[in-house]
Structure formats: structure tokens, C-alpha cells
Amino acid sequence: MIKRIDITNPKLAMEVLNVQIPSYKVEAALIDSDEIPPLKDTVDTLQQCGENFFGYYINEELSGVISIKIENSVMDIHRLFVHPLHFRKGIAKMLLDFIQTNKKGFETIIVSTGSKNLPAIKFYQKNGFSKIKEIKVTEHLSLTLFNKKI
């Protein structure tokens, strides 16, 4: 089941963090860099981020999360992650489909991921996203940006 998460609630923000950290640790290993901003998040930074969060629950346990902002007809996916115990169950796709179906007021979706995160790159391409460009963040870290017209 997918439902909105009130990220300003400290208990819910902690639940998100408890899924986010293990998930992004997997990405950090894939891209060989722990300089991923979500690994540095705290309950406070999540509560202040201004993103809209939606969670996928299995038996009332938060298993995956997507967060977005919509501005100027563009939906920006800030986070999309699944707890490693629930990888390969289609949760990321269900969350992506949910926001595309249930949110209004946008014509384009944008998202970025680590350029060495091949599973995420394949996921976005498989779901209709086109690679826009790559941005070098540091000597060892680059991001790949994608968009999708709706």
C-alpha cells in the first residue's frame, strides 16, 4: 500500500531515515563514493527539506519511499529508494507509477542518479526516461540527469 508520509512528524521522519540510509549505502558501494547527500540526512534535515514524501508499506512496515517537488510544470524526483531487504520486488516501479498517476500539475519529470549506479540508470531508461547529461560533481563522482515528458 502507498500512502503520503508527513515528513514533519519526527517518528515518520525517523522511519524514512531507517530505510533511506541502508538503501543509499548500497548506492554508495555501487558508485564507489559515500559523498551522497542522503547519507548525511538527519530527522531535522528531512523535516526541513520541503519535499512531498510517499511510502510503500508491506504489513505496515515502510519498505520504499519516493519524494518529489513540483514547480513550473516540472516534477523533480528528489529521492526514490527501497530498503535492501525489499529489492527486486517492483516497489520502486510502483512508487514511480503512483506519482505519475496521482499527482497533477506537471508536464515533465526530472531525476538524477550516480552515473555508476547502473541498476538505477537501467530502471529510469526502462521507465521512459531519457538521459539529458552527466555532471561531474567531484573527481570520483558524477551524476546522470534524466527527464521524461508526460
Rank of each mutant, 00 (worst) to 15 (best):
M1N: 07
D6S: 00
I7A: 02
T8S: 05
T8E: 06
N9Y: 09
N9R: 05
N9W: 07
N9I: 04
P10Q: 12
P10H: 11
L12Y: 08
L12Q: 14
A13C: 09
A13H: 06
L17K: 07
L17E: 06
N18S: 04
V19H: 05
Q20T: 04
I21D: 03
P22N: 07
P22A: 09
Y24I: 01
Y24E: 11
K25Y: 04
V26Q: 05
E27M: 09
E27A: 14
L30F: 11
S33E: 08
E35Y: 00
P37C: 00
P37D: 02
D41C: 06
T42S: 08
T42V: 01
Q48S: 10
C49L: 00
F53W: 00
F54N: 02
Y56G: 05
Y57M: 01
Y57S: 01
I58G: 04
I58E: 14
N59V: 10
N59Q: 12
E61C: 05
L62I: 07
L62E: 03
G64K: 09
I66K: 00
I66S: 04
K69P: 07
K69C: 12
I70V: 15
N72W: 11
S73V: 13
S73T: 15
V74K: 06
M75W: 08
D76Y: 01
R79T: 04
F81L: 05
V82C: 07
H83Y: 01
P84D: 07
F87N: 11
F87W: 06
K89Q: 15
K89F: 09
G90F: 05
G90L: 09
G90M: 11
G90P: 03
K93T: 13
M94Y: 11
M94K: 15
L95K: 04
I99V: 15
I99W: 02
Q100I: 14
K103Q: 14
G105L: 12
F106A: 10
T108C: 10
I109L: 09
I110A: 03
V111A: 11
S112N: 14
T113Y: 00
T113G: 02
G114I: 08
S115C: 06
K116S: 09
P119K: 08
Y124Q: 08
Q125G: 02
N127A: 01
F129K: 02
K131G: 06
K131Q: 14
K133R: 15
E134H: 08
I135P: 10
K136M: 07
V137E: 02
T138S: 08
E139K: 10
S142A: 11
S142I: 04
L143H: 12
T144E: 13
L145F: 15
N147P: 02
K148A: 10
K149T: 14
